[in-house]
Amino acid sequence: MSQPAAVMAQKTIVIGLGNPILADDGVGIVTVERIAQQVEHPLVDFQWCSLAGFELLDLLVGYDKAIIVDSIKTGKYPVGQVMELEADSLMSTVRLASVHDINLATALELGRMLALPVPAEITIYVVEVADNTTFREGCCREVAAAVPLLEKAVINLLTERYEDLSVKGGVAHHA
């Protein structure tokens, strides 16, 4: 069954955030790099970077939907636990904090205020990490084990949105 043209034309960006040389912090980047090797679609773009605030806004402009994969360190959840952030979490962080640049929610709100075409829907997957302050390549065992779960979550979401999503090179289907 084909999808309505308006839905089909919607563009999605999948962004992996983090620092690949800062231990577990690189999990978002590793995940999205792997997803980009597995699936493709003309309306889906993949990016991985160590960005925040204004730079993230630059990436998001022009897309209808966004999927972000990042690490989080709350100390409240088991290391390696994969979670989805509720939409209200994003908005509750609209505030002035004390480091350089603005946060994601503020960046999005600014984009809307200035009539920039920012995504109407953003899904954020996070994984609880143990160490994001030590320079080291590679994640700890628990966080590395979360990567397939994150991949599955993102690919399932993309499959729901784009039924003609192409799977490259016979990689196992996640659904």
Partner: peptide, 11 residues
């Protein structure tokens, strides 16, 4: 580093 850990800023 905290500038790019969610929720986006270091509190």
């Amino acid at each position: 580093c905290a500038t790019h850990s969610l929720p986006g800023q270091m509190p």
